Simulated scan of single mutants.
Amino acid sequence: MEDQEMQLKVRRVADKFTESMYVLANEPSVALYRLQEHVRRSLPELVQHKTDMQSWEEQSQGAIYTVEYACSAVKSMTNSSLYFKNIDGLLRQAISLKERINNSQGRRKKAVDTGMPKEGEKLTTGM
């Protein structure tokens, strides 16, 4: 009876030992399988996120360039106030000259309408 009990106990220990060895031997395989499964599921989403991020980066770089260009344009405009003052003075001169020309043309028309001689003409009488 003792031999049977001893054999049963030895068998249990041997089975437990075998099961433990089996688990230890297969544990890395199971872990690697789970890891592969996870990568297979999540990789397409990660690739999509990377693509989106690259696109956003390109758009951001374009926007940054545009803003920097606009800032430099505004800075150069503040430095050109002297030129705008010169343009303003020239425009005022042109407007005053145009008004003088219009006034002189208006006098000539009145002279022609009233029968006054034009410059360089002699007044003739009907005799």
Rank of each mutant, 00 (worst) to 15 (best):
D3F: 04
M6L: 11
K9V: 05
K9H: 05
R12F: 01
D15H: 03
K16S: 07
T18M: 09
E19Q: 13
E19V: 03
M21L: 09
V23Y: 12
V23E: 13
L24M: 09
N26K: 07
P28F: 03
P28Q: 09
V30A: 12
L32P: 00
L32F: 07
Y33R: 07
R34M: 07
R34F: 01
Q36M: 07
Q36I: 00
E37W: 07
S42T: 15
L43T: 08
Q48I: 03
H49G: 02
H49A: 10
T51C: 05
M53A: 13
M53N: 09
S55Y: 13
S55H: 10
W56M: 08
E57Y: 03
E57F: 05
E57N: 06
E57L: 13
S60V: 00
S60T: 04
Q61T: 02
G62D: 06
A63F: 00
A63Y: 02
I64R: 04
I64N: 02
Y65E: 12
Y65H: 09
Y65M: 03
Y69W: 06
A70Y: 03
C71K: 14
S72N: 12
A73R: 04
V74A: 15
S76L: 08
T78Q: 11
S80I: 00
S80N: 12
S81A: 06
S81R: 07
L82H: 14
L82D: 14
Y83S: 05
Y83E: 14
N86Q: 11
I87R: 07
I87Q: 08
I87P: 00
G89Q: 14
L91C: 09
Q93R: 05
Q93G: 04
I95G: 03
S96G: 01
L97Q: 08
L97F: 01
K98A: 14
N102G: 04
Q105V: 11
Q105Y: 11
G106K: 11
G106V: 03
G106H: 10
K110A: 10
K110S: 12
A111N: 05
V112N: 03
D113R: 14
M116Q: 15
P117D: 06
P117T: 09
K118L: 15
K118D: 15
E119T: 03
G120P: 01
E121R: 04
T124N: 04
T124F: 10
T125L: 14
M127H: 13
